[in-house]
């Protein structure tokens, strides 16, 4: 599961959950891949993300110190070097084993072999 996926996942589909976002992320194992950097695509992705959730994801892989605490005002004003850090976080980090946890109900969704299983609690919906 690439880290950008965490950015839009919520447990809103569960019973009695109001927002269910962002999910808490526990990373037990991840791999770092080398997907080619593309400036334009990185900006397109960053335009769409919720920055607060990205900070949560970065912290889960011990890389929150690599990105600013405050969301940059204009992504296209960042240098390639700065954007590469975000590209690395969003695209190159693949969570293989871990958990996504609903912030409201504490329901645990396992991540196995890189696939987050959100259907585990389908019966609770």
């Amino acid at each position: 599961m690439k880290l950008f996926v965490h950015n839009f996942m919520s447990s809103r589909f569960l019973k009695n959950v109001t927002v269910g976002y962002p999910l808490n992320l526990v990373v037990k194992q991840f791999v770092e891949k080398d997907i080619e950097f593309d400036r334009d695509n990185t900006i397109v992705m960053l335009d769409r993300i919720q920055y607060e959730a990205l900070i949560v994801a970065a912290a889960a892989v011990n890389q929150s110190d690599r990105i600013p605490r405050e969301k940059p005002e204009k992504w296209d004003e960042l240098t390639d070097e700065q954007l590469r850090v975000f590209h690395h976080l969003l695209m190159n980090i693949d969570v293989i084993d871990g958990e996504l946890i609903c912030p409201e109900t504490k329901t645990v969704f396992p991540i196995r072999d890189g696939i987050p299983n959100m259907l585990k609690v389908d019966a609770e919906k």
């Binding site: 599961m1 996926v5 839009f8 447990s11 809103r12 696939i115 987050p116």
Partner: peptide, 11 residues
Amino acid sequence: ALRRVCIPYVP
């Protein structure tokens, strides 16, 4: 929540 059907993303 406002959509008729709310489904989780599972690759």
